[in-house]
């Protein structure tokens, strides 16, 4: 027998605890607030932190969008969407503009978010200093003492080794001139979107039991050296082979038959939106 779950899966006590941690996170931008991460019906490391935030936030009036590396239709996004919808009955959308709540794995949408939207990011490793210090006991003290030599040294070693900072994703940021923070594994391309963002950004790490936040209109700077400034991934001269978009984050694909490299928008709903509006213009142009 299937028993009906409580609204938004959680009991009210769990929601309260997550809500309290979230408010503290907003009040201390970039600081990782510990919380009692609950067991979820998906495995830890598959977005449980983001999911718990979403469930604590969501109400019947919300419209939810879930993306996984830019795609609305990948397995992780779809299973999270289904779980939330089955336990809340909220509307789902793929359009970024129509969503009030956006849960995302590893991307910030191409469309600029607004003040009325909340972006929830899933985080595997919330601790930016973990690579230089394995002990949580010590990293907490390093944050307390504003001691971030480790983070700088990491970037410095990359420059020594590769001639540039070689962070693929999750390039550390400096939030509100105080905390060094892991922005979750978003590409460097998305880091600047966090600076003075209009939307509230909440980050949840379920396995590591941490919640942190970037309130709107908050200074977020990517760590960089004066002589090695921060750069984003460059797609100069390339465009999406479907919609022709430039200046967006592109996936590099290889045609198996010809061996040719081509590019495609990583944000699928953005690409779809552009294709659809192009189509409409074509119809209007040809038939009116």
């Amino acid at each position: 027998m299937m028993t009906a779950t409580h609204f938004a899966f959680f009991d009210e006590g769990s929601k309260k605890e997550i809500r309290r941690a979230t408010l503290k996170a907003v009040a201390i931008p970039g600081y990782q607030v510990p919380f009692a991460s609950r067991e979820m019906p998906i495995a830890r490391g598959w977005g449980t932190g983001g999911l718990q935030l979403t469930l604590s936030l969501i109400g019947t009036q919300d419209t939810l969008k879930v993306i996984d590396q830019g795609a609305d239709e990948s397995v992780n996004a779809v299973s999270i969407k289904k779980l939330v919808q089955e336990t809340t009955g909220v509307d789902l959308t793929e359009q970024t503009e129509a969503a009030t709540l956006i849960q995302s794995r590893h991307r910030i949408p191409e469309v600029t978010l607004t003040e009325d939207q909340i972006l929830v990011l899933q985080v595997p490793t919330p601790e930016p200093l973990r690579k230089v210090e394995a002990r949580e006991y010590v990293t907490k003290r390093l944050h307390a003492e504003d001691e971030y030599s480790g983070a700088w040294l990491m970037l410095f070693e990359q420059i020594m080794k590769y001639g540039k900072t070689a962070t693929g994703a999750d390039h550390p940021v400096f939030v509100n001139h105080r905390y060094v923070m892991a922005p979750s594994p978003i590409p460097r391309f998305d880091n600047p979107k966090m600076h003075q963002s209009e939307a509230l950004i909440l980050l949840g790490a379920g396995r590591e039991k941490k919640i942190y936040a970037i309130p709107p209109y908050t200074d977020v700077a990517s760590l960089a050296f004066e002589d090695y400034p921060f750069t984003v991934e460059s797609f100069a001269g390339q465009h999406c082979h479907l919609c022709g978009a430039e200046d967006v984050f592109l996936d590099e694909l290889i045609d198996e038959a010809t061996g040719e490299t081509y590019y495609q928008c990583n944000d699928t709903s953005y690409c779809m939106g552009r294709l659809n509006s192009g189509e409409r213009q074509e119809v209007v142009h040809n038939h009116v």
Partner: peptide
């Protein structure tokens, strides 16, 4: 309604906390 009303109250508090 302790589930739905308090959820909306929380969102109002969160909105005001993130927009002092």
């Amino acid at each position: 309604d302790q589930v739905h009303d308090l959820q909306q109250v929380y969102r109002k508090i969160l909105h005001s906390m993130s927009h002092p």
